[in-house]
Design a protein around this nucleic acid. Structure first.
Length: 142
DNA sequence: GTTGAGCGTT
């Protein structure tokens, strides 16, 4: 019974909508005190060409400010790129301007889709807000 | 020699 309710709640669109009172983020929005689900200094970069490595990703993003770390996710067995990665900036402003400039731009022939990274939480599946990043960045500011 | 939406390690 309870597990059924939980399933229904988690699969509802309201659960994933931070503006909904069904969402676990609703309280943090109301109080604007808790940690935001989005990191404004970490970028999630998807749509990467298989041949893009961390070096070329760093080169592409280091013009916008200090990049503290770059990661590309590789397949455990084949060792090939999974086509997405993360870029960590020293400041939020760097990430914001990098996203604005690079989102949709091509790297090695493929357009990158960039958004602000969400924190992965142990256990639960990662929840990605369905609202636009630009909107989220404003909404979750501080 | 392949594929193409996505939110990850210690």
């Amino acid at each position: 019974m309870n597990s059924l309710k939980l399933f229904a709640r988690r699969t509802s669109a309201a659960f994933y909508n931070p503006t909904s009172s069904f969402s676990p983020y609703y309280r943090s929005l109301s109080s604007s005190v808790s940690a935001p689900p989005n990191n404004n200094n970490k970028l999630f970069v998807a749509g990467l060409s298989w041949s893009v490595d961390e070096r070329s990703l760093l080169d592409a993003f280091s013009n916008f400010g200090e990049v503290t770390e770059v990661r590309i996710m590789y397949d455990k067995v084949t060792g090939r790129s999974r086509g997405f990665g993360f870029v960590y900036f020293a400041k939020d402003d760097f990430a914001v301007s990098a996203k604005d400039a690079m989102d949709g731009k091509e790297l090695l022939g493929r357009p990158m889709r960039i958004s602000f990274a969400v924190d992965r939480v142990r256990g639960d599946p990662t929840m990605v807000s369905r609202i636009r990043d630009s909107e989220a960045a404003i909404r979750y500011k501080n």
